[in-house]
Structures are given as structure tokens and as C-alpha cells.
Design a protein around this nucleic acid. Structure first.
Lengths: 217, 217
DNA sequence: TAATTACGAGACTTTCAAGTTCCGGAACTA
DNA sequence: TAGTTCCGGAACTTGAAAGTCTCGTAATTA
């Protein structure tokens, strides 16, 4: 599962073929493997600047120094490109491979969150806050993007909390899922409604004053 | 300021005239004064269902059993209609003078919920969540509407919690503002991102298992 | 070299909604 | 009654953007 760190996201069926021979090598020029990432970065840039509805495929193609046909060769539609770009964006915010285990839950939860570069953190907010109609008009695809963004993060949190229960730091009947959901909700709310950065310090305050006291009671 | 409770919002210059005579009575059929409100209610309904970008003027006209020409006779453009509809929506404020006071915070908080969450509170949130590009293009106006909509709700919760502190039900150093923000966030998150009804039972669970234990610690 | 596929660029088609204009009829005033 | 303005409904114009197609060129393999 983790042997390939590449993207593996789009894979739109381009060469339909007969698929008769199994190991037949494909002729012709190969797809530029770096182009996927370039296109998604361009997508995120435009999303941050314009929002979902004002973003046009022509803009993305121009920013990526590519052609619109190339976009549609790799993604079937605009919403699906945006979905993958969002998932791509969120991959860089949680360090899933090196879970901390300090013996203190608050420290662990905070340690998992990568410090944003102010540049990328800012872009992230603007991307998320310009997504309004994406959610309402393409609900199914948007849901895929949402779970792609949140589920890795929530899974990490759940694991860390589970450990804290095992070592007696939390009450055995603590409602972990609800706590994870609240963290998720605050993140979405802060960025989408308040349009402010959800900082590590904000996060710490919520853990300290609400989540942790509740889970210990 | 408060002598006239009517709308006084649009007033698009229809009869340009020469304005020579000052008190000249206007000829012809009068504008239906109730129609403004009907149109705005329709606008809010469509906004809640479709979001700003997918809302068309034709839909609004149809819902209001009116014609598109009538809309444009009263508002110069779609964004300006939406702006006035948002202002109109935020005017329906909270009856802060008749708050429950049962001596039990959870009961009070739940008792207050009913009037908002049933229909209009839910619609408010959906309207806001679908504002998309309207928000980014008319940020100033939208920000005003935002605080106008959320603050009365939060103020009620804050008052109820304050009383609970006074009678010793909560810790004196409980972070009330943060708790209010979490409630706000969960409401927005559940309805907007999860697209599920935020039921009274959900609310009760959060109060019981997270908010209240935290505020008592 | 010849066949094949991806590439960038741009023209093209299609769809959809904002905003305009026109119509017959209704309400109002002088 | 005659003139005026609003009404709802619909046809119309205009513009923008999604998605398709074509073409000349570059990369890859047999």
C-alpha cells in the first residue's frame, strides 16, 4: 500500500484498446508524470484566487502552461479535478507515518499537525472558503473530497485517543467519535464561515478547555 | 429610525420624471407593497436549496408567482437582490426578553433551540453555506450579514450560560465564548457539510457529553 | 524510418443564465 | 373615459464557460 508514494489519482481511461494481450507494451509518447501535480497546484492557485465557480478550465490550463485537452485527457470533469486537487492539498497537512507517543494526549494531538508555512496556510484557507457552490452543486463528489481531506486526520486522532484510554489518561466511556467530530467541525467552521486561519494555538485552546476536560469526566 | 417598520430597501429609480413639481401625485397603478417581502422570501428559499450560483432569477420569479421583469423593476441586479434578502433575513432577530430559566442549563439551552432550528434556523445556515462567489465578490456586505445572523443566537446562549455560572452550576472560569462557538460550529458543520438535520437529540448529546462536563471542570 | 500516443494551442459547439424588451391586462388617477 | 403605471408571462439578446475536436509537433517504440 505504501510502496508507491506517487499520485495514482486520475487514471482516466485513455487507451481503451482490446486488452487482448496482457503484457503488451504501450506505444507512443508517455504521459508526463509530473504534469498531474503541476495541474493540481495550478488548480489550487486559481481556486484560492477566484473560488470554485469563477475558476475556469482555461485559467487552469494557462497557469499550468498546458492545454485544456490535456486536462480532459486526465480528468473527466471540472469537479473531479477539484476533488483530486483538494485531496492532494490535504495530504501535506498531517504526518501520518510518524505518530508521536509522548504519554500526553494533548501533546500528541498537537504534534500531529504540521506547522503550515504561512504561504501555504493562507492559500489553504482561501481555497476552502471559495468552495461554496462546489458543495451545493456537486454534493457527491464534494463528499468524496471531504472524506479524503478529513478521514486520515480523524483516524490519527482516534488512534491517539484510543491509546490515551488504554493508559488511563481518559475515561473509559469517553465519546471519542464525538470529540473527533467536534474537532473536524471547528476546522471546517473556522475556515469556511469565519474565514480565518485555524491556528495551532486555537486548536490547543479547544483541547485544553473543552475536549480534554470532557473526555476525562 | 424605528417609526417605520416597513422595508425601505430597494427603491430602484423607476419614475425618473422631470421632478419639476414637488408634490405631484404619481399616476397609474401602485406597486404592490407586499411583493418585496414575497420576493425576498422566495429568494431565501431558493438560496437555501440551490446556493447563490445555481439560483436563477427565473426560479425566484416563479417561486414568487411573479415575472422576471418585476424583479428587475425593483432591483438592478441579482447580487443586489441577494444582499437585500440577506439583510431582510437577519432582521428577524431573537426574542432575548423571554428566555427560559428553569434552573438547569441543559434544559434552557435546549428549550431555546426550537424556534430557530425547526425551519428558519436551518434555512439560515443553508443560505449562508451556499453563498459561494457572492461572499468573495461582495465580502463587506456579506460579513455584515454574517454577524447579524449569528450574533443574536450566540448572545442568547451566552446569557443562559452566564446565569448558570451565577447560580454555581458552572465553574467560574468556564470559557463560555469558546463553548458558544463550538455549538455554532457544530450546527453549521452538520447542516452544511454533513447535510444531515442537526436534531435536538444530537444537540443534547453534545451538551451532555462534551460541553457541560467541560464547563463544569 | 514508420506507427503510435501525448502534447500545446486554439477553434468550435453547446448549454445556460443574466438582463432586456414587448405584450395584453389590471389598477389607479384626473 | 383617457392616460398612466404596474403586473405576469414569455420571447429575445448577449456573454461566459464546459466540454469536444482538430492540427502540427514532440516523444517513444518496433
Amino acid at each position: 500500500m505504501s510502496k508507491n508514494n506517487k499520485l495514482e489519482i486520475s487514471k482516466k481511461n485513455t487507451s481503451v484498446k482490446k486488452a487482448t494481450k496482457k503484457g503488451a507494451t504501450v506505444l507512443g509518447r508517455k504521459r508526463d508524470p509530473n504534469l498531474d501535480e503541476t495541474i493540481m497546484e495550478s488548480t489550487l492557485d486559481i481556486l484560492a484566487e477566484k473560488g470554485f465557480d469563477s475558476m475556469t478550465m482555461d485559467m487552469v490550463a494557462a497557469r499550468a502552461k498546458s492545454g485544456k485537452a490535456t486536462l480532459y485527457r486526465r480528468w473527466p470533469s471540472k469537479p473531479e479535478l477539484v476533488r483530486d486537487a483538494l485531496i492532494f492539498m490535504s495530504k501535506s497537512s498531517v504526518d501520518i507515518d510518524h505518530l508521536p507517543d509522548s504519554g500526553n494526549l494533548k501533546e500528541d494531538l498537537l504534534a500531529v499537525v504540521k506547522p503550515y508555512s504561512s504561504e501555504h496556510g493562507h492559500r489553504k484557507i482561501r481555497v476552502l472558503s471559495g468552495l461554496g457552490s462546489f458543495f451545493t452543486e456537486h454534493q457527491k463528489i464534494a463528499d468524496e473530497a471531504m472524506s479524503g481531506i478529513f478521514s486520515p486526520w480523524t483516524n490519527v486522532n482516534r488512534t491517539l485517543m484510543q491509546r490515551a484510554i488504554s493508559r488511563g489518561e481518559l475515561s473509559k466511556k469517553a465519546n471519542i467519535d464525538l470529540a473527533c467530530e467536534i474537532i473536524e467541525a471547528m476546522t471546517a467552521y473556522k475556515t469556511n464561515f469565519r474565514r480565518t486561519m485555524f491556528t495551532k494555538s486555537d486548536y490547543g485552546k479547544i483541547l485544553e478547555q473543552i475536549i480534554l476536560p470532557a473526555l476525562k469526566a
